[in-house]
């Protein structure tokens, strides 16, 4: 197996464990964060995002001093800075779905091992949504 795939496995394990431990696998908790007007706001998600963003901010500082990755490969990073209609409309639509169900892609995927039947319904619908997008691009 190539070294990049091993990095993907290690990153996936950390990411999945982090999501599960953080409470974000629970749609009710996520909607509790999004429900800022309901009088019983749950800020847990803010701590999850905060912890992750702080670690990643350090990683980006380290990355700026690197020419190649630790594995000696080239970086493959998005470079666009264009604010276009798809970015804005896509984010609005994603936000509606996130608010409706209390699930975004990561937590819904780990749901497949935590509550397979319920998460499965969401993930199959998410795949359908992604497939519809692919059709619109064809």
């Amino acid at each position: 197996m190539n070294k990049e795939n091993i990095a993907a496995i290690i990153a996936g394990l950390f990411f999945g464990a982090g999501l599960a431990l953080s409470g974000m696998a629970d749609p009710v908790r996520v909607r509790g964060f999004l429900d800022i007007f309901g009088g019983n706001w749950d800020p847990t998600l803010m701590f999850v995002m905060g912890g992750a963003v702080v670690v990643m901010a350090v990683a980006w500082i380290i990355q700026r001093g690197m020419i190649k990755t630790w594995l000696g490969t080239d970086f493959s990073l998005p470079s666009s800075t264009t604010i276009d209609r798809p970015l804005i409309m896509g984010s609005v639509i994603f936000g509606i779905g996130w608010g409706v169900a209390g699930l975004c892609p990561g937590p819904s995927l780990i749901g497949l091992v935590l509550e397979p039947l319920k998460a499965g319904i969401f993930v199959i619908s998410m795949v359908a949504g992604m497939f519809i997008f692919k059709l619109t691009k064809a």
């Binding site: 896509g90 984010s91 609005v92 639509i93 994603f94 936000g95 509606i96 779905g97 996130w98 409706v100 169900a101 209390g102 699930l103 975004c104 892609p105 819904s108 319904i121 969401f122 993930v123 199959i124 619908s125 998410m126 795949v127 359908a128 949504g129 992604m130 497939f131 519809i132 997008f133």
Partner: peptide, 8 residues
């Protein structure tokens, strides 16, 4: 929710 999250 799944349809909207997938497409969005």
């Amino acid at each position: 929710g799944g349809l909207l999250v997938g497409f969005g």
